[in-house]
Design a protein around this nucleic acid. Sequence first.
RNA 1: GGAGAGGUGGCCGAGUGGUCGAAGGCGCUCCCCUGCUAAGGGAGUAAGGGGUUUAUAGCCUCUUCGAGGGUUCGAAUCCCUCCCUCUCCGCCA
Length: 426
Amino acid sequence: MLDPRVLRNDPEAVARQLARRGFVFDADAYRDLDTRRKTLQTRAEELQAERNQRSKSIGKAKAAGEDIEPLKAAVAGLGEQLEAAKAELEAVQAEQDAVREGLPNLPDPAMPEGHDEADNVVLREVGDRPHLDFEIKDHVAIGEHLAGLDGAAGAKITGARFTVLSGAVARLHRALITYMIDAHVDVGYTELNVPYIVNADSLYGTGQLPKFGDDLFRLTEPADYYLIPTAEVPVTNMVRDEIVAPERLPLRYVAHTPCFRAEAGAAGRDVRGMIRQHQFEKVELINIAHPDESDACHEAMVARAEAVLAGLGLAYRVVDLCGGDIGFAAARTYDLEVWLPSQNTYREISSISNTRDFQARRMGARYRDPESGKPRLLHTLNGSGVAAGRALVAVLENYQQADGTVRVPDVLVPYMGGLEVIAAPG
RNA sequence: GGAGAGGUGGCCGAGUGGUCGAAGGCGCUCCCCUGCUAAGGGAGUAAGGGGUUUAUAGCCUCUUCGAGGGUUCGAAUCCCUCCCUCUCCGCCA
């Protein structure tokens, strides 16, 4: 949610900034709407003030033992007028709220210009790509050869875009997750285990609702809940309606969760393998920060995700998302893309965003400013550190060997019970 | 699922339909006193929206006592529905 004050005082500036991300905001229409709102609100509040005053004097008269019937008669018509004025006001406010809830975050001035992902800016490429002087297999072929990846089973059990992992490959997936959590906890992150089912208020807070409900799996029985599309939702909502003591900032959380996404609109994209699933797992980093610190936190979070990829010995690049590719709630987003030999390209494995006060305003997440003593909005940041399913894909492909086996990255060997090479069973 | 108790400010906790945004306490801030510390005395201290304004200062105003409805001139207080917490029972990984 954008600052209503900024929106009111300078909607044209908002429109200009949102245009950088390809969003059309009709500043004139908003201005007109706000003018109507102001008129109606003033009227309604005047009536309310009058009624409050009269009711108060009735109370005093009654306490003094006076006859209050004439006073009551004088208020007779007020109630209906007030009712009508309130109804009108609420209608306009609802209209205005709907507009505001649909507005994406203002981009950082430094965000690159551009219309789609082709315009993203590559900041750096890190690590050596593997030298595979044999016929490169993709992770599906590797996984099937190792009897560790079974898309048909997933399809039978549930449907398209679900997969069963088994044996050493399943363990590798688990090893990746544990390795990543440990790495973040080692530098001061607090590990959280959170609900995978959330209510609509939480999804509103992080910005998935009301606009992006189609991307979510919704539960209607026995309660109206949703499966989380990312740990960002439950973890960030920890501070919803809270006033955090400033000395606790920044809050740094790491949580491993499954993520459930309907993938509406992704028909035909990445249909093979584990790149795009309805259910995948992720190790998520969340920072809840003082506004002055959030940019530094953002950089530090990117460094965390990079450390994971570097630790795994994977080649990756860091990309600064342009206006056409950045998400609804983000002011600035860096993506980490990992090298996939089978696709001969980099694919997203982590996305790290600073939403500044956009989510905090929606969810009433604040800290108490020591100088003024007043609550101020926090900044919230989220980023994958990193996506486990895609990390598994990356390890299988980058560590494949000519004989069809897969070498276990050194840092994962302890998590694999000492296993150094994954070979086909039996 | 059954029976009962309860949800009030940063926290705890009072509150008979009217002068209650709400006693008291804790915490916090400022001041005083005490030659350090501890203790003591005084004052202040909820949040959000709107208007005015250069202003996140002041002033005016509205809203908020779990959520949503209702009764009433007037609701923290009365009525209805829902949510949550706690205790006991039942069920259960």
